[in-house]
Design a protein around this nucleic acid. Structure first.
Lengths: 233, 233
DNA sequence: ACCTGAACACCGTTCAAGT
DNA sequence: ACCTGAACACCGTTCAAGT
């Protein structure tokens, strides 16, 4: 209903010639407005909406094109393949995710590493819960090709390094029992990822956790873990 | 190459008429052999092979039919839809999984609940690691429709009840610190599911765990959790 | 510089017809 | 009682042609 029909007037593209000078990319977004406004953007949003109900598998290039009001071939001007479109969605998701984590930690004291770790875990879970489609696209290998993009990988590496620093700092301060740090890191990560995936994959009901109890339960689990790291005396 | 070609002789079906008497299903498997031998079986196996590389999304009814040497329409005599085929694969996976878990617990003392819980967790992880396609089909909601079958749900419920019993028994025996049992159950489950999914989704490399270290690391994490349940005195 | 239209080789699914 | 063949409405992707 909302797509362009044959015969409708086509808005002419603006006449600007945005020549990127070599080695330099414009700050906000390399692609500029065309006929559509910003087709690239529209396609990413359509893809996300499709993923939101039906999961990543339900994302179709043709359907995204339809929703953006362009022909089936148009998206391939902006994305080399369906996978490339999904990767673009993943990149945006990862960016937003990072921003949210950073915000959650910003007003916490720098000298309370375990408290920061807890906040990190809780923010992670909450984000996954509120952005299930984004989360699944970032996490699930088989969602598409797999080879996650460089920018996603880097963002991820920084997050991993962060958990490492926080644990090391907690140990240095004597906040922790004598636990192998690597083991603690993997345990915490698996716990939080597991909680998020249980939510995404709809497991909580069968484990006897009602929908409006999920968040509280997840926090309880996280607390149990954080406390288990502490000294026992 | 291996599919039947037009003109090849078609083996005639055996002349038995397997009339199921009402309300009673034959023990081993309701479907009997036809022309193909057992097309249902062949399709399930082909589907599994397809899922093994490429994930559940890569399962195609037509390709499964091709591999079984039948026409594209033939599978729909045995499965109402692609989803129904995937559900059949999931049911078989769940059966095998249950058998493996039961075997892992069979030679363990009945009066050591935390030891049994540990063995359950380790067996769960190992099975996921060695049967990634099966595991993903059982676990991932968006793999197909979602509505997992009744038999899968029941098998699952029994496993959940088992973890509950083991924890309650450990508490009764005084093996545990004062911890909310529900919280402990969810924490343990999320940890083990998270470990399994990290493996399936290929996360371990970026968390600095090499392939041949994954199993040992997972067991370390499980031990850390089991120990955190214990009394602190 | 971007988009369309038509085409190709795929899908899941249905249905009449064959044995 | 099971399977084929042809058909339908979809898909991802390519490519010549349009503006």
């Amino acid at each position: 209903m909302c797509s362009r029909r044959k015969g409708d007037p086509i808005p002419t593209p603006s006449k600007v010639k945005p020549r990127k000078s070599a080695g330099q990319r414009s700050r906000s977004r390399p692609e500029v407005a065309y006929h559509h406004g910003d087709l690239r953007r529209a396609l990413i949003e359509a893809a996300l909406a499709l993923a939101a109900d039906g999961g990543p598998a339900a994302v179709s290039v043709r359907e995204a094109a339809r929703r953006a009001g362009v022909s089936p071939a148009a998206p391939f001007r902006h994305f080399a393949s369906r996978d490339a479109l999904l990767i673009a969605v993943a990149e945006e998701a990862q960016r937003r995710f990072r921003a949210e984590i950073d915000a959650a930690l910003s007003d916490l004291p720098a000298d309370a590493p375990l408290q920061r770790l807890r906040a990190l875990a809780v923010a992670y879970f909450r984000w996954a819960m509120r952005n299930p489609a984004h989360f699944e696209i970032i996490s699930t290998r088989s969602a598409f090709d797999h080879q996650t993009s460089v920018s996603v990988a880097q963002d991820n590496a920084e997050l991993i390094a962060m958990t490492e620093r926080l644990l090391a700092e907690a140990a240095r301060r004597g906040d922790m029992a004598e636990i192998d740090l690597k083991a603690a890191q993997i345990t915490g990560r698996a716990l939080v990822y597991g909680l998020a995936r249980m939510q995404i994959d709809g497991h909580f009901p069968r484990w006897g956790v009602a929908a409006d109890d999920v968040e509280r339960t997840a926090e309880q689990a996280i607390d149990l873990f954080i406390r288990s790291l502490g000294r026992r005396d």
